[in-house]
Design a protein around this nucleic acid. Structure first.
Length: 423
RNA sequence: GUGGUCGUAGCUCAGCUGGUAGAGCACUCGGUUGUGGUCCGAGAUGUCGCGGGUUCGAGCCCCGUCGAUCACCCCA
């Protein structure tokens, strides 16, 4: 029989890598939680129309990357390609925007895009994101950026940079796009590129081909068209980022892939990742709520790619061997039942315990204890059960001391807490 | 979706101009009475990604396919 394989392009994590994945995810989530963001756990599939309208019909995501299918009731369903649209839907549906503003939520989970896979770009991938809805204030833009930056710093990342820009309000963008389209009409580009430009002229700023870059170097810049209000907001963002010691560069030709962005937009790019360098991105989306049938509320948020952050940490040599965190390993000699009962008793007291199963010789059992990474080990055999005394051995030093079985739990708990204080 | 590279034991890889597979690490057991990490010895493990073809004979050549990877489009 042919072996089953995971579907093409999905990312999945098994030991020992899974522990690194878990660490990245929990660090990102923690950074959101300390800033007062609360969990939303949302479905991975939604009405197709939600993404078509929310993400934007002109985007590649909607045009060719969505996993769309018909469910048994004939509804068109799509696996979520990003998080913001679903959050907006939930906020509107559950009237979260009727209370105190801003609504601050975070989410974490799998997302789906039907692209040609490569390292750092998967068909099922993982993101942690936050959204702050209902406050049009550059300070909240900065808070959102700071949540991401704090997480990256906690994760030990150094080789990344924050790029920011302002996309202006929708009126500004409209008038600017007229200018840009006029400019593009006057340069020489191939038919396919022109078609892309017709869909979204901003895309040409992102093109990697030198001749296109050269042609676009003389293009009008959106930043020059900002209203005084937008310009002031953008200046405030920069001022506060500086005050927070968050390094950034202004990239006035940055393009975001989703249509809903307005005002502040940002991207975190890692320098050691090749073409898939963005480890996170986000910005302000002031028209989105209304566009999805909610009230006129502004919003700002980001999505951070767990898979790519993990690759970035790996590239920076930050993936140290995982520690098991085990406190005790039990090596049974012919008394498997008693060993399991003891292990469970200790586990119920909150001690992290593993044990050898099956008939192992003492030497093999001790090898297992060694490999388990546990701080202590005991051998449990007929002698110990008869005398009620075990030798508690500290694996690193090799020292052992006699402890009665009855006192073992308390002894371990005391040693563990002392150990913690000396760290 | 377009183009390039790659696919050999659990992992990292070797395999000369085609003659039916190897190393290191890891794993299991042992080095005589109940204590691991070093050392020594022994052992198990692969339909050489999958399917066709050429050939007396293919891991090595050809075609297809699946997957990974790199770049593009695009993006987390």
């Amino acid at each position: 029989m042919a072996k089953f394989q995971a579907p093409k392009g999905v990312s999945e994590y098994v030991p020992d890598r899974s522990s690194h994945f878990d660490y990245v995810r929990s660090t990102l989530i923690n950074s959101a939680q300390v800033a007062g963001y609360q969990l939303v756990e949302l479905p991975v599939f939604e009405d197709t129309e939600l993404f078509a309208r929310g993400v934007g019909e002109s985007t590649d995501v909607v045009r060719k990357e969505m996993y769309t299918f018909e469910d048994r009731g004939g509804r068109s369903i799509t696996l979520r390609p990003e998080g913001t649209a679903g959050v907006m839907r939930a906020v509107i549906e559950h009237n979260l925007d009727r209370g105190q503003l801003p609504v601050k939520v975070y989410y974490s989970g799998a997302f789906f895009r039907a692209e040609r896979p490569q390292a750092g770009r998967y068909r099922q991938f993982y993101q942690v994101g936050i959204e702050a809805i209902g406050l049009a204030d550059p300070r909240i833009d900065v808070e959102v950026i700071a949540v991401a930056d704090r997480a990256f710093k906690e994760l030990g990342l150094k080789n990344y940079r924050l790029e920011i820009t302002s996309l202006g309000d929708s009126a500004t963008r409209e008038s600017y796009l007229v200018e840009l389209r006029a400019f593009i009409a006057g340069i020489e580009i191939d038919a396919e590129t022109r078609e892309r430009a017709n869909l979204n002229p901003l895309r040409l700023f992102d093109d990697k081909r030198p001749e296109i870059r050269e042609a676009m170097s003389k293009a009008p810049i959106l930043m020059d068209y900002l209203t005084p209000e937008s310009a002031a907001d953008f200046a405030k963002v920069q001022e506060l980022l500086t005050a927070l010691n968050i390094d950034f560069v202004v990239n006035n030709r940055m393009v975001r892939g989703l249509d809903y962005y307005t005002g502040t937009a940002f991207e975190f790019a890692h320098t050691d990742l090749g073409a898939q360098s963005a480890i996170g991105g986000g910005g302000r989306y002031d028209g989105l709520m209304a566009q999805l049938g909610g009230q006129e509320l502004s919003g700002v948020g980001f999505g951070l790619g767990i898979d790519r952050i993990l690759l970035a940490r790996e590239a920076e040599g930050l993936l140290l061997p995982a520690e098991s965190g085990l406190d005790l390993y039990i090596v049974p000699l012919g008394v498997g039942d008693a060993a399991l009962l003891l292990a469970e008793e200790l586990r119920n007291r909150g001690i992290k315990v593993d044990l050898a199963f099956g008939d192992k010789a003492l030497k093999g059992g001790m090898k297992s204890a060694d490999k388990s990474g546990a701080r202590y080990s005991i051998v449990l055999g007929a002698d110990e059960l008869a005398s009620g005394v075990v030798h508690l051995k500290e694996m690193q030093t090799g020292e052992s001391s006699s402890v009665t079985l009855g006192a073992l739990a308390n002894e371990l708990i005391e040693r563990i807490s002392n150990y913690g204080e000396h760290l």
